[in-house]
Structures are given as structure tokens and as C-alpha cells.
Design a protein around this nucleic acid. Structure first.
Lengths: 207, 207
DNA sequence: TCCTGATTTGACCAACTGGTCAAACTCACG
DNA sequence: CGTGAGTTTGACCAGTTGGTCAAATCAGGA
């Protein structure tokens, strides 16, 4: 087992390699569906060697989750109270859509976990996500009170943004099967822009 | 093994019981995460007895999938070319939302499978879902051509409906964690109605 | 009632899975 | 170089899992 001392070059490299491999495997098969052997193979290590760096399969998974959740929520944190409300939200939508295109494995990792009841994530949801949602949905409600946005249920609005954008990562196989000829990510930005602009633009200055 | 003859009373009952139990277990844990023992226990049968009615775990799963996909797509089939376009689509949205409330296990069963690449469903997607999507998205495009609906990408529109409505079943744990005090299904219908009405209403007769 | 096919089960098996361990090997540094 | 800590691995283990099988039990028509 690696000591408590500052990590060696090898430790740093191998832990990173393992987490990358784990992301690949866990996002494709879920926690239960993934095997330590699969992860080890994907990382180019033997199973005992992998377990030299992490005490258990569960430990890999939870470290991966908590490490990724933070960056996953960055776009929402970036919602700026001082920006133009409509443009802030539209930009958030596009940023989230970009993340579905660029980091689909992260999205599927969370999706897998939550669909199955989030047994290893409920804490993070209440502790990290909930306060952030409360803060930002309050901000959005303020914007609506000020007449800068058409009035909607601000929490459902955020759920809608998550749902619509992550759909393109989580259900990628289905979307691509049904859109053979066209890359979904070519037309999705326009579609979502239109959708949220018409929903939120005050007094119908819709695009 | 049951013979090819017409099923006995016991066969009918037990096969139905098993499929119900399998839905419960598979929707909560995914294919790999579910065990035959779990299903047998949930069905109140011994494992060998369960395997007397189905040849394998895989067979239970595929029969369950194909049996449910049909009814799952009924609301889309019901989209009526002769109805009022906007009301037809809004009604479809509400029907789908109802299904998320009333049959969340079915929704999660499909979600689990598709997030993991739909290894056992790709055929059904191309063979059953694709033609239906083509038919209905063509219908919607016609409606838009006729000026009955605001113009959008009709396939993305259908993806959006699926995504938004099924989100309340698939991500139920997350939604409820973040909405402690309120039942999501109380306010979701209004929210989605507003969303699609504003998106689709021609010349802005928005609600 | 009796008999035959349908149903149920305890015991079992081979493959897989997460994890352990002692021995071997490698690397950086004095 | 040599040496001790850091790293890697083959062999192994116990628990789980999907599935089999022969024997036991049950149901219903003649």
C-alpha cells in the first residue's frame, strides 16, 4: 500500500491512469456491471497492482464520483447574477450541451448511478447539489420577479436544462440510431436555444 | 420445461408473476446488477422453479423488454394526424408524463439499458422505434409546413419530449432529493405545458 | 381412485468476482 | 554499487452467480 508520504511520480501516474480507466468502464457498465479485472486491463495493470493503489472497487468508484461532481457543476456555478438573465441561461444551456458532447462518459457515470437510486451519491446530492440548486433557482426567481424573464417554475427549469442537455450524452446510442444521417450535435444547439429563448424571453421577443 | 401446448393456468400465472418480479428487480439494478435469485425471491419461487419457466436470465430480460416496448410506444402511435396539431402534441406530452408517474419502473428499465449502450435493444430501436419516429416526425413537419406549429427540428422536438418527461421517472431520486417539500408531479404538468406551448404555438398565442 | 404429465425443489457444479499475500523485482539515493 | 522502500505479480481463497439434474410432489382427466 502506498504510504502517507507525498506521492511518487509513479503513484501519481498510476492513480490517474486507473481513474481514467475506471471512468471508461464504470460509465459503460455501471458499478455492479464493471469488474476490477476490466478496469485493470483498461489501465494496463494487473489486478493486484491496481488494488495496491486503491483499497477496493468501491473506493475507486467513490473517489471518481466525488472528483468529477465538482467540475460537473462548474457551469451552474458560473451563472452570473450580474449578467443579462436570458443570455446567462442560454449560455448555460449551451455549455451543458457542450459538456454532453465532450464528456459523455461523465454524464453516463452519473446517469447510471442515479437511475439505480444513487446509493453511493445521495449524500453528494443533498450536500453539494442541493445548496447550489437552491442558490441558483432563487437567483432565477429574482430575475423573473424583476421582469427580466418570463415566469416559470425555476427548479423545473433547471431540471429541464439538465434533462435536455444530458439526454444527448446518456441516450447517445438511441439518438444516433434514430438520426443516422445527421450528427445530433450539429442541430441540437439551435433547437435548445430556440426552446429556452421562447420559454424565457419576456413579452415574446422570441428568436 | 413447459411444453409447446397451450399454457396451463399455473404457467400463465407464474410467467406473469416472474415478469412482474423481473421488472421490479431489473429496473432497480440493471441487467448485470440483478440476480436470478433476487428475481426468484421477489416472485416467491425457487431459482430452479423460475428457470423451469424461462430458459435463462437473458431470456427473461429480452421477453420483458419486447413485451413492454410496445405499450411504451402507444402514446406516440396515438398522435392523430386529424387532430389539432398543438393540442395533439401537448396531450402527448401530458400522457408521457403520466406514464413516468404511473410506470417509472418501465422507464428506468429502458433508461438503464440505453445508458449502457442498449446491447440488447438496438434491434428494437431500429426495427420498431425508428419507423415510428420517421412517421411521426414527418407528420409534425407537415403541421409546421402548414403553419399550424412554429417551426422546429421535429426529431429533436420528439427527443425533447421523451427526455423531459422520462426525466421525472429516471432521475426520480435526484428530483425528489432536490424538491423535498413539493411533489414534482404536482408542478411538472404545468411547466411542460408552458414549455411546449410557447415553443410550438404559431405567432405567439402563448399561454 | 389411479395414472400421467406438469410442477417444484435440494443438492450440486463450473465460472466468475473481489480481494489477499508472500515473494520477486525495480528504482532512487547515499 | 548496495540497500531499503516502493512496486509488481502469480497463486490463491472464499463468496456469489447462472444454470443443471434427478428425485419428489402435485393436479386433473379417465
Amino acid at each position: 500500500m502506498p504510504t502517507d508520504r507525498s506521492p511518487t511520480r509513479i503513484q501519481k501516474k498510476n492513480r490517474a491512469t486507473i481513474l481514467e480507466a475506471a471512468l471508461e468502464v464504470f460509465s459503460n457498465h455501471g458499478f455492479r456491471g464493471a469488474t476490477v479485472d476490466q478496469i485493470a486491463k483498461a489501465a494496463g495493470l494487473s489486478k493486484p497492482n491496481l488494488l495496491y493503489y486503491f483499497p477496493s472497487k468501491e473506493a475507486i468508484f467513490t473517489e471518481l464520483l466525488s472528483g468529477l461532481l465538482d467540475t460537473w457543476l462548474d457551469p451552474l456555478r458560473a451563472l452570473d447574477p450580474d449578467g443579462d438573465p436570458l443570455e446567462e441561461i442560454l449560455a448555460y444551456v449551451q455549455r451543458k450541451l457542450q459538456m454532453s458532447r465532450d464528456f459523455p462518459r461523465e454524464s453516463r457515470l452519473f446517469a447510471n448511478e442515479i437511475v439505480q437510486g444513487a446509493p453511493r451519491m445521495l449524500d453528494s446530492l443533498s450536500k453539494d447539489l442541493k445548496p447550489l440548486l437552491e442558490e441558483k433557482s432563487a437567483l432565477i426567481t429574482q430575475w423573473m420577479d424583476a421582469g427580466k424573464l418570463n415566469r416559470t417554475h425555476s427548479k423545473h427549469l433547471l431540471f429541464s436544462i439538465w434533462s435536455l442537455t444530458q439526454h444527448y450524452a446518456d441516450f447517445d446510442v438511441q439518438v444516433r440510431t434514430l438520426m443516422e444521417d445527421e450528427d445530433p450535435f450539429d442541430s441540437a444547439p439551435q433547437h435548445l436555444e430556440l426552446m429556452f429563448r421562447r420559454l424565457l424571453a419576456p413579452d415574446h421577443i422570441a428568436g
